[in-house]
């Protein structure tokens, strides 16, 4: 298909070219310099299929195949033995390195977690201990305060009771003295008013009666 269209384009133009009588249909239609046409057709004349569409020209197949085998074969060997192991190795190394780093990071994280846990445990213990100390101090202070208070209260109570007994004594004494004074007063009054002497017992009885009656 390509061949025929190439022929169709170039074939009518071929007679126009001044050089190369019986030139190949592939010869240049666009008024190219004669020298160039010569080299062009000269190359083409070397081969049996001079007019073939170049990419399909079988006269070059052997040469192309040979050089393809040589170049591609070399390329394949170079890829297989040098480039692929090398690039693969680089990628592998990176994967290993990343995996190792991740592992390391995981380990460091676990360590950090453990450290945090220890810290929190210690903190809790310290807190509990300080709480205990405070509690004990509070307790001690409380008991001491209670003891002090009870001691003071006891002392006060003792003082109070002593004062009370003393008051009672004074009261009794005063009462006793009141009786005596009353008796003396009564006998004096009786003396003055009656002019007689009342017996001490009568006066005493009378005073006692008045006292209880009062």
């Amino acid at each position: 298909m390509f061949v025929t269209s190439a022929y169709a384009q170039t074939a009518p133009a071929a007679p126009e070219t001044p050089a190369a009588p019986g030139a190949a249909p592939a010869a240049e239609p666009h008024a190219a310099p004669a020298g160039e046409v010569h080299t062009e057709t000269g190359v083409a004349h070397d081969t049996e299929h001079s007019g073939a569409f170049p990419p399909l020209d079988s006269s070059h197949f052997a040469s192309q195949l040979l050089w393809l085998v040589i170049t591609f074969g070399l390329f394949y060997l170079l890829m297989k033995n040098v480039i692929v192991p090398r690039v693969g190795g680089i990628i592998e190394d990176r994967h290993d390195r990343i995996a190792k780093d991740l592992e390391e990071a995981g380990r460091a994280k676990a360590e950090a977690d453990a450290a945090v846990e220890t810290y929190e445990k210690e903190l809790a213990a310290a807190r509990a201990k300080s709480h205990g100390i405070a509690e004990a101090a509070r307790e001690a202070a409380k008991t001491k305060a209670a003891a002090d208070r009870s001691a003071i209260e006891a002392e006060l109570a003792a003082k109070l009771s002593a004062a009370e007994t003393r008051i009672g004594e004074i009261k009794d004494k005063a009462f006793a003295e009141v009786g005596q004074i009353a008796e003396e007063t009564a006998s004096a009054i009786v003396d003055l008013m009656i002019g007689g002497k009342a017996s001490g017992d009568d006066i005493k009885a009378a005073v006692a009666a008045a006292k209880t009656g009062a």
Binding site: H60, S63, T71, F75, I83, V87, I90
Partner: peptide, 28 residues
């Protein structure tokens, strides 16, 4: 009797291999 000439096609096959292999070699 077989034409095995080093042609412009062979030259560019060589260039292709040289470019590709050279790039990959120096890049890595």
């Amino acid at each position: 009797g077989i034409d095995l000439s080093f042609t412009n096609a062979s030259l560019f096959m060589t260039a292709t291999v040289a470019c590709a292999a050279g790039f990959l070699y120096f890049a890595s």
